[in-house]
């Protein structure tokens, strides 16, 4: 049901897309990894080709195998964690808060 590795020339995933996607999901990848990922992702997607071309018009998507609706909680306060327990696992803490480097991307310095 699943064919052999496909022609890289027809790879549906380009290097550029791989780099774009890596940016979205916050992964640093080098050239070698990008090339390898492009090939591997292309291979998986080409195996899904038959699926992608299947006619599913009029078919509702299944987000979930369960028929449940309206699962609700009453608005009652439950005990929170102690601040110490919350912060004890953190890589960096200051004044009861989680400390992180500047949230904006630093532009690389001009040479």
């Amino acid at each position: 049901m699943i064919g052999s590795a496909q022609d890289p020339e027809q790879a549906p995933v380009s290097r550029e897309e791989v780099e774009q996607v890596a940016l979205l999901c916050r992964l640093e990848i080098d050239d070698g990894e990008a090339r390898e990922l492009a090939a591997q992702m292309s291979a998986v997607l080409s195996h899904a080709a038959a699926l992608l071309s299947l006619d599913t018009s009029g078919v509702d998507p299944t987000a979930h195998p369960l028929p449940l609706v309206n699962v609700l909680r009453t608005d009652e306060v439950r005990e929170s964690l102690a601040q110490g327990d919350v912060l004890s696992q953190a890589p960096d803490v200051e004044a009861g808060r989680f400390r992180v480097p500047p949230v904006r991307r630093r532009q690389p310095e001009e040479p």
Binding site: E28, Q89, A90, P91, F98, V100, P101, P102, V103
Partner: peptide, 23 residues
Amino acid sequence: DGVRYGLRVNAADTPTMNARTRS
């Protein structure tokens, strides 16, 4: 993402820290 728990690999800004940690 290296903010609240688990591994953090430091960097000059949070987006780079996130990416480096995850990588």
